[in-house]
């Protein structure tokens, strides 16, 4: 068993250090890059909490969509879907709509890690200007 601080606690500690001790003392490009670094650590912190459940859900959804329950590797599943969407002349009726659903779920899970709240957004502006 690893000692405290845990991985999550280490990430939180470094984030605090960047924000409270480094940020007030830098400007220009270094300030911008410090903000980026702190944000990346917050992403990492959320990923520790959320990613394994998100990967499991994405794996099941892709296996189901592609009819490939024997394939466990998420990268392989994504590669298959990518190739299919790019190269298949004809897809089964409704396949693209089902793919859209699966991809929107996976995208929502990635947003929850990388940019929470980005999907709270009124789409109407894009459609009816």
């Amino acid at each position: 068993m690893q000692d405290r601080p845990t991985a999550a606690e280490l990430v939180a500690t470094v984030t605090e250090f960047l924000e409270s001790e480094v940020l007030p003392n830098v400007d220009g490009t270094l300030r911008y890059h410090t903000l980026v670094a702190a944000n990346l650590l917050k992403i990492l912190r959320r990923e520790v909490d959320l990613q394994s459940a998100a990967d499991a859900a994405e794996r099941t959804a892709l296996q189901d969509l592609l009819g490939a329950p024997e394939v466990d590797d998420l990268l392989t599943l994504n590669e298959r879907l990518h190739r299919l969407l790019l190269e298949a002349d004809d897809l089964q009726p409704g396949f693209e709509a089902r793919a859209w659903q699966v991809l929107m779920e996976a995208t929502g899970a990635k947003l929850a890690v990388n940019k929470p709240g980005y999907d709270r957004y009124d789409m109407a502006i894009e459609v009816t200007p």
Binding site: V36, L40, M104, G108, N114, Y118, E126
Partner: peptide, 21 residues
């Protein structure tokens, strides 16, 4: 580091793209 962070911003455009589609 900003170029690295861009990799984790691509999902914002994926979301917008799906909604536009």
């Amino acid at each position: 580091i900003a170029m690295a962070a861009s990799g984790r911003r691509a999902v914002e455009l994926e979301y917008d793209l799906l909604r536009l589609l």
